[in-house]
């Protein structure tokens, strides 16, 4: 995935059984953002793979004051890339779960 300066990782082990996953997001390279992020904290949140979109979560982070509104796309992309990787991995392990 493209290096957006915003890192998103699983906050818990993914067994591929729940639609909701816990993710953790933090800024690795503030220079890649247009605005100044709130601080150097890691933001943990849950994401429903079936019902939510990365754009929704990114918008809520902007509204909660974590990022400047000009960075909504870069935050959404960072989440989208990680979610895509999780879904790709789930597709691969699905036969083993059945």
């Amino acid at each position: 995935a493209e290096d957006t300066g915003v890192r998103v990782e699983l906050a818990e082990e993914d067994h591929g059984r729940k639609s909701t996953i816990a993710l953790r997001l933090w800024v690795e390279d503030p220079k890649k953002l247009k605005g100044k992020p709130k601080d150097n904290g890691a933001i943990e949140f849950t994401f429903d793979l079936e019902r939510e979109t990365p754009d929704d979560v990114a918008q809520e982070m902007i509204e909660s004051g974590f990022f400047h509104e000009s960075d909504v796309k870069i935050v959404a992309k960072s989440i989208r890339d990680r979610v895509a990787l999780i879904q790709w991995r789930r597709e691969r392990i699905r036969p083993a779960l059945q």
Partner: peptide, 27 residues
Amino acid sequence: SSLTQVVHSAGRRFIVSPVPESRLRES
């Protein structure tokens, strides 16, 4: 505690914790 919790009006909960130094990229 060093954890901060922010709840968005839509109901989503964000829990903020310090990032370990080892996870931050050196610039």
